[in-house]
């Protein structure tokens, strides 16, 4: 099953992650995301978490790694629609102080 989907429009790369993010899935997802980032060279990366129901600290590693890569490439990076469960772990790591979170109710 596909774990990640990409939409590239007007220099914005939307990365939609489907399903749980843990150490097992993060390795595979990370490689895919990075290859698309290098290929498309977007101005903004929007990491869509709306379909992620579970995430552990490997997900934090995945997000922080992509955030750092985006910064190195001079590209903007935002998170989109994390659910309450995911938001809890994001705030534990202070992620909202590092990057914008959009689509928040």
């Amino acid at each position: 099953m596909e774990k990640v989907k990409f939409v590239f429009e007007n220099n914005v790369l939307t990365v939609k992650i489907l399903g749980d993010i843990d150490h097992h899935s993060a390795i595979h997802v990370r490689e895919k995301i990075d290859s698309v980032i290098f290929d498309k060279k977007p101005v903004l990366i929007l990491l869509d978490l709306s379909l992620v129901e579970f995430m552990d600290s490997s997900g934090l590693g995945l997000i922080l790694g992509r955030f750092t890569l985006a910064k190195d490439l001079g590209c903007d990076f935002k998170l989109y629609k994390p659910c309450a469960t995911v938001k809890k772990i994001l705030s534990l790591a202070g992620i909202e102080r590092l990057m914008k979170i959009e689509g928040d109710e």
């Binding site: 993060a26 552990d56 600290s57 934090l60 590693g61 790694g65 534990l92």
Partner: peptide
């Protein structure tokens, strides 16, 4: 590698 957050025990604790 910069891919691990170092937050595992903090998560368990919290």
């Amino acid at each position: 590698s910069g891919e691990r957050s170092g937050m595992g025990f903090a998560v368990m604790q919290t």
